[in-house]
Amino acid sequence: QRRLAPRRPLPPPAAPPPAARPPPFLLVLVPSAPSHAARRQAVRDTWGGGARTAPGGLPTRTIFVLGVPGAPAEQAALGAEARRHGDLLQGPFPDTYPGLGRKTLLLLRWAAARCPRAPFLLKADDDVFVNLPALTSYLAGGRHPRRLYLGRLHWGVRPERDPGGRHHVPAALYPAAAFPPYCSGTAYVLSRQAVTAVLAAAPHVPMVAPEDVWVGLCARRAGVAPRHSARMGGSARVPPDGCCYGEVMFSSHRLGPGELRGVWGLLRGGGGGCSRLQRALGVLRCRLLAAGEWLWG
């Protein structure tokens, strides 16, 4: 009997081309899983939109970052998706939840090497809605530190010591009783200078889980202080509300593809404004809506 030669794994899709000139003002990097094709397409169809120009003439560009799937059919599908959209960046490591740190390191290295003149980088999950016009306007109009690390801050988080836990951190790897303040990994911003500092610190920092903790540890070693923004939603899911999504919040978490399109349709249809009272209550009102969603949803 003839022996069949083992099937070689399909090569990864070609990496996205370097940033054009002028470079994007905000480079958006979205970690995603191979099976999340519907989420990626929803981001493209809504707030991400590939390469576009936000109000004020500020260009943005969206890239999705993945690892290697377990099945050849999934890899073939990724190759076809990459050829169609040109926005997939794939690393040579298995796409698993514990590998999110390696995925984050890949996206930071790609940004530094292939898009080094972009002033700001946004890392956002593929189930997050981001108000890019509001965020880019904030970044362009404010006086920020050169090494900006901006997001929804977590304080006093303790490492998970349970060996069976999803975010297990052995004491031998990180012995301290609590992590330093860090920005929620659902969505955070790094300036170009902060990206350089985090990458310089990365080889000296153990890759603990979750990945946002690791970025925070790298930032602390580099002397980059995280800055809190209440307009970053963190892990909160704000229910569809034109005022919150259109004016107040920079990000909201845990939205499926249909919900992303629903919010986008609401804003495109002119339903993104706030009344005088809503504007006065601002983030507090949106946080109360999110709390109600969690209690009654």
Rank of each mutant, 00 (worst) to 15 (best):
Q1F: 15
L4G: 14
A5E: 15
R7N: 14
L10R: 09
L27I: 03
L27H: 01
L29A: 12
V30C: 15
P31E: 06
S32K: 08
A33N: 10
A33M: 14
A33L: 15
A38M: 12
R40T: 13
Q41P: 06
Q41L: 15
V43Y: 13
R44M: 13
G48F: 10
R52P: 10
T53C: 09
T53Y: 11
A54P: 06
L58D: 02
R61L: 08
F64Q: 05
L66I: 12
V68L: 14
P69D: 10
A71F: 06
A71E: 15
Q75N: 04
A76P: 04
A77G: 07
A77H: 02
A77D: 10
G79Q: 13
G79C: 11
A80L: 12
R83D: 14
H85Q: 05
H85I: 00
G86Y: 10
D87A: 08
P92R: 10
P94N: 05
D95K: 00
L100G: 00
G101F: 01
G101L: 01
G101P: 02
K103H: 03
L107R: 04
L108Y: 03
L108I: 01
L108R: 01
L108W: 02
R109N: 03
A112K: 04
F120P: 00
K123E: 05
K123T: 09
D127P: 03
N131Q: 05
P133T: 02
P133D: 05
L135C: 06
Y138N: 08
G141L: 08
R143I: 00
R143T: 11
R146M: 05
R147Y: 01
R147S: 03
R147P: 01
R152E: 02
R152F: 06
R152I: 00
P159F: 07
E160M: 00
P163G: 06
R166W: 01
H167C: 08
L173I: 02
A177R: 08
P180G: 04
Y182V: 05
Y182W: 01
C183S: 10
G185Y: 00
T186Y: 05
A187K: 02
R192E: 06
R192Q: 13
R192V: 01
V195Y: 02
L199I: 10
M207A: 12
V208N: 09
A209V: 12
L217Q: 08
C218T: 07
A219V: 11
R220Y: 03
R221M: 13
V224C: 05
R227Q: 14
H228N: 14
S229F: 13
M232H: 15
G234K: 05
G234T: 12
S235A: 15
P240G: 11
D241H: 13
G246K: 07
V248N: 05
F250N: 12
R261K: 13
V263A: 07
G265H: 07
G271P: 08
G272V: 06
R276F: 03
L277F: 00
R279Q: 11
A280G: 06
A280K: 08
G282Q: 03
L284Y: 00
L288K: 01
L288Q: 09
L288E: 00
A291C: 10
